[in-house]
Structure formats: structure tokens, C-alpha cells
């Protein structure tokens, strides 16, 4: 099984880090992984995205035109990338920032108010982990504990205390999507 996911949002939302944690988690599970960021004349507040692949075997191309899943963190990313997802694929939308509903009827779509959840946890920075938790719950691409192990390795000593709020964010994201019925059509 090859998991391909596009993560998109604006700079500062932890889009690239979300992808890296997923890739790192896969590495810790001895899987093949690739992480490819968009690069260009980027700036803070501008758009950012990356494509991550996690697979049990050698990955042919790290660049996929039509990924099987997308995590979109804001409205511009939804407009730009909704059309890219493979038919029958998975679309996770941060509904706190993407206020319009997705239009495609041939995707499994889930709305996750990630910013609101993060805010209720008192740490807005973990909105990306809410999205990642939701994605992992639906796909099982890697386990929660691998991602948390990866996060632990990247956090410096004085920031280790943030692990628990990150775990909480992932769990709430997972809960949100497991409560939503597996919807093929959003409307």
C-alpha cells in the first residue's frame, strides 16, 4: 500500500513540518518515504505545500500529479488543490480557515475545524497536529506513536513538555473524523 498525501496551507502553519513528521514516522517504522516541498520565491504568509509518500516498497516517483489524499489548511489551498486529488481520494479541510465547502462529489471529504480545536487546547500552534491526527485515523499510514517519537526527536529539551498537547491535538483530530460518517458526498 502506498500512501500519497499533499499537505498545503500558508507559511507558518507547520505545513512542511507536518509532512516531515509523517515521513520521519514512516522511517521509524522502516518504511520507504519521500518528502518533497514546493520551493520557489517563498515568503512568510505565502503558500507552502509538500507531498509525502509512505510505502512498504521502493517508491518510483516522489512527485505525484494526483495524490490519493490532501490536507488543506486554508481557503487558497482548497481552491488550488481540490482538483488535484485522485478521484475516490481523501480530502481533509481545515474548516476553521477554509470557509467555502469543497465542490467535488467524487472524494471522501472531512471537515476538521483544526484551529478551533487547537485554540480550545490553549495552543494554536498544534492545529497542524489536529489535521495530521485526523489523517492518520482515516488511513493508518503510520502510527500515532511513531509520529510522536519523531516529534520528540525534533523537539529541544526545553520544549519536550509540549509533547502532551501535540498528542492531545492528534487524538482530538482523530475523534472528530471517526465521529463523522464516511461521506462520499459533502452535500
Amino acid at each position: 500500500m502506498q500512501h500519497e498525501v499533499l499537505v498545503a496551507g500558508f507559511g507558518g502553519q507547520g505545513v512542511l513540518l507536518t509532512g516531515q513528521l509523517l515521513a520521519y514516522g514512516g522511517l521509524l517504522e522502516n518504511k520507504e518515504v519521500t518528502w518533497f516541498p514546493s520551493y520557489g520565491p517563498e515568503m512568510r504568509g505565502g503558500t507552502a505545500n509538500c507531498i509525502v509518500i509512505v510505502s512498504g516498497k521502493r517508491i518510483a516517483s516522489p512527485v505525484v500529479e494526483r495524490p490519493g489524499a490532501a490536507l488543506v489548511f486554508n481557503q487558497p489551498s482548497l481552491l488550488k488543490f481540490e482538483a488535484k486529488v485522485k478521484p475516490g481520494g481523501l480530502l481533509l479541510v481545515n474548516s476553521a480557515l477554509a470557509t467555502q465547502l469543497p465542490e467535488r462529489k467524487d472524494l471522501y471529504t472531512y471537515l476538521v475545524p483544526a484551529n478551533e480545536v487547537a485554540q480550545s487546547l490553549g495552543q494554536i500552534l498544534v492545529a497542524n497536529m489536529v489535521m495530521l491526527g485526523a489523517y492518520l485515523e482515516l488511513t493508518g499510514a503510520v502510527t500515532f506513536s511513531s509520529v510522536l517519537k519523531a516529534l520528540e526527536k525534533t523537539l529541544s529539551e526545553q520544549r519536550r513538555h509540549l509533547l502532551s498537547v501535540n498528542r492531545e491535538a492528534m487524538e482530538q483530530g482523530a475523534q472528530l473524523v471517526s465521529q463523522q460518517a464516511r461521506k462520499y458526498h459533502t452535500r
Binding site: 518528502w35 520551493y39 516522489p62
Partner: peptide, 10 residues
């Protein structure tokens, strides 16, 4: 090329 330069892999 630019892809291989920016790409992360194990």
C-alpha cells in the same frame, strides 16, 4: 536537479 536537491528520503 532541483527536485533531488530539495527532496528528503532515508
Amino acid at each position: 536537479d532541483g527536485v533531488l536537491g530539495q527532496l528528503m528520503e532515508p
